[in-house]
């Protein structure tokens, strides 16, 4: 299982995958807003989305696992 943490404190603008999706490395998983900038969180490896732990509007920090891949 590969856990993907939020890279910084920010607000979730959109969750761009759902459980069961197949993703490739560098596909966008989640889009955050931090410092008035859109930050895309990319998949670190190929895999299947096993968990999505955030929703649009949530505030996440670096200890938040936003998505888990298997």
């Amino acid at each position: 299982m590969t856990q993907v943490n939020a890279p910084m404190v920010g607000k979730v603008l959109s969750v761009d995958v759902k459980v069961g999706d197949q993703v490739k490395k560098n596909d966008v998983l989640v889009t955050l807003e931090a410092m008035k900038m859109q930050i895309k969180v990319y998949a670190p490896a190929d895999g299947e989305v096993a968990e999505v732990n955030c929703n649009a509007g949530d505030v996440v920090s670096t200890d938040t696992v936003v998505v888990a891949l298997k």
Partner: peptide, 26 residues
Amino acid sequence: VPMAARVVHNMGTEANPQNYLLMHAM
């Protein structure tokens, strides 16, 4: 501030999408 940090973040992401430089550049 914070435009220069944003520019740096974008340049880092362009070179490597796994690169999140925004807060480091702040």
